[in-house]
């Protein structure tokens, strides 16, 4: 009641019109990256009548062993226990009592744990590489080398990694190397020149790529 009375006694406030202002426009957003969707390439598929091998996902034993092989012995382990083996039931490995066939789909759960595994092993691998206690990724490239300072060594290391991880033999200058040099360079750019982060990105990218976990 009192509040209403006070409101009734309050003089009408003067309406103040704001000064017209010129809106400050944000800078133009960057153009979306060219995904190359306007160009359609050709794909040479195998003859449908010819018998083929089905591309399939690695099973968990293959994945565990291959990650260790690719990283010079580093596995996704916690207290000496392989996490991939610990998670094998969730990842579709049969016990032949309740489940009698192996689920080899590269589903979301698989991708999630593969990502976890890649992050874990690549952290350790790159630490060792930069500390000089391992040399399965950098090859002749030095810990601080970039493509700006030693392109030959970095490109050679990327080519060697592509062979080791994916079984693809490429020469420096091969277009198949471009995504990986781009990944390396882009990481350097966004991290302000952190070569550890750049090699880590390459390592993770190589492991989570279908060319690694499928064959």
């Amino acid at each position: 009641m009192i509040a209403l009375a006070l409101l009734a006694c309050t003089p009408e406030p003067a309406v103040v019109q704001p000064d017209p202002v010129t809106p400050v426009l944000r800078p133009e957003p960057p153009a979306p990256p060219d995904m190359g969707l306007d160009t359609v390439g050709t794909v040479e598929t195998p003859d449908a009548a010819s018998p083929t091998r089905e591309v399939r996902r690695m099973d968990i034993d293959q994945l565990d062993a291959s990650i260790r092989s690719a990283t010079g012995g580093i596995g996704w382990d916690v207290d000496g226990v392989s996490q991939l083996q610990e998670l094998s039931a969730s990842l579709g490995v049969p016990d032949f009592a309740q489940r009698t066939s192996e689920d080899l789909t590269a589903g979301l759960l698989f991708q999630k744990f593969l990502d976890d595994a890649a992050n874990a092993v690549c952290d350790t691998l790159v630490e060792r590489e930069l500390a000089g206690t391992s040399n399965v990724l950098l090859g002749a490239a030095g810990p601080t080398d970039t493509r700006a300072t030693n392109a030959a060594a970095v490109d050679a290391a990327l080519a060697a990694a592509l062979l080791r991880y994916h079984g693809r033999r490429v020469s420096p200058g091969d277009p198949q190397l471009d995504p990986w040099t781009l990944l390396f360079d882009s990481t350097l750019t966004v991290t302000g020149g952190d070569t550890m982060a750049a090699w880590r990105s390459v390592c993770i990218g190589l492991i989570v790529h279908p060319d690694f976990y499928q064959y």
Partner: peptide, 22 residues
Amino acid sequence: MFLLTLGALATEPPTCPPAEAL
């Protein structure tokens, strides 16, 4: 950060490996 750099990958036209009949 990894996603950012993956996004950066897309600034270049994707290059597919050669088709693999064999």
